[in-house]
Design a binder for these strands. Structure first.
Lengths: 226, 226
DNA sequence: TCTATACGAAACCAAACAGTTCCGGATATG
DNA sequence: CATATCCGGAACTGTTTGGTTTCGTATAGA
């Protein structure tokens, strides 16, 4: 949904129907961003079940009461935190446009993007146990963590088709998810680092060959080391 | 679910020569297989943190005391259960050999294998939260759940290379993990079913094109359709 | 300055759960 | 039958933790 603004808890005594407080501080939940950020950090470090509200409160230098004033439960807080994690979403207009598919794909692998991706993978790992039991959370995670990159890849591939670089028959949908899938697998299952070389290897070893661009043997060194 | 003497662990028949008790019952932890099986079921259904020893005991129609007589902790039980989950491992000698890579890959997609794979995905999901904090568990899960299929794929690809069907340059390692990666992603993140069509689509849309066999529009009809 | 409000800190409560202990019963051996 | 062992079930303990309440305080508006 929208930011962390669910509905205000109206359990405070004597609140009038008018929502605008005439007196006292009017700033409304200033600490929300800090708390959400803290929740994401703890989530990435300990996973959903290992995470406690006290950890989040301590990390955000807040009190547990503040958390519960704002979110009715731990689950809601996590959903909100994940949903608010929109940063890193690739904007349609800021996508690389190098003229070749390989150039575009490689240009996507900025150090910042890799690092941010690793963080997201860790968050995703922390969510895994809960994700299969909370469709709402699954959707939030999908939209915030993996969909941005997948749709960016989809756009890049579509552009390559439009300019005639690759065939229109290509399985764009699966190809767009490929790097994310393999990255999750690598981090969560193989427990190996996801770095630039890994992505390059994927591009040159699978994606480009799969779209008929062959293996660009001259333009880089061997990645299929065994 | 109802067990009826699983063939998981054959530790009870031939007792060692040394440890033979002279009196009383000599059956040694007969219930172990049932308990391990129950642990896997509960694990798949509720995840590691949601799983309780009482659930496992109840499912196995055993007492909690029996569990703790045999395993020192919940963690140890889970590690053992995962490690004992060897079934479904593809034997090197029972792999399909149809003469073509596509034939072999498609032959791997038996209904039983798909169903079993889905179960393993669920177990893996349940383990996720714990897996990053318990290297021992991570290794057990990798060896029991994903490695068997990956290595089977590797063998199939290698055979295709050996017979000259595909180039030796292919990124075998990544290709062998591809279907597993995409399946995990699909089940856990996309929450869509992993069925035969999905795997066929992967083979025809990505794997075969990536190894230079092109898209087999002519050789098989109706398989790549939606 | 006064006042209402949101805040952080800490105490508190109830439920759930890992792990333990005890006991009656089943069962195989002698 | 006697005995030794293992089992299932249930009661019990101690701890953790989600969630609540209380209270002193900081702050912004009147």
């Amino acid at each position: 949904m929208t930011l962390g603004t669910s509905q205000l808890d109206t359990s405070q005594p004597g609140r009038g129907p008018d929502a605008s407080p005439k007196l006292g501080r009017k700033r409304d939940h200033t600490r929300d961003p800090d708390i959400l950020e803290a929740a994401l950090e703890v989530l990435a470090e300990t996973g959903y079940d290992g995470m406690t509200m006290e950890m989040v409160a301590a990390r955000a230098k807040a009190g547990k009461a503040t958390l519960y004033r704002r979110w009715p439960s731990k689950g809601e807080l996590v959903i909100d935190a994940v949903a608010c994690m929109k940063r890193g979403g690739f904007d349609r207009d800021h996508l690389p446009d190098t003229g070749t598919l390989r150039g575009d794909l490689v240009a996507m692998i900025k150090p910042h993007a890799v690092e941010d991706g690793a963080r997201k993978m860790r968050i995703m790992a922390g969510l895994m146990s809960m994700i299969s039991r909370t469709p709402e959370l699954a959707e939030a995670a999908r939209a915030a963590i993996v969909e941005p990159r997948a749709s960016a890849n989809r756009i890049l591939l579509q552009r390559a088709i439009d300019r005639g670089e690759i065939s229109a028959d290509c399985d764009i949908d699966n190809l767009a998810m490929l790097s994310q899938s393999m990255a999750i697998y690598r981090v969560l299952v193989l427990q190996k680092p996801v770095n630039r070389e890994f992505f390059i290897g994927l591009i040159d070893g699978i994606v480009l060959p799969a779209v008929g661009l062959g293996r660009p043997q001259a333009q880089r060194d061997g990645n299929t080391a065994r």
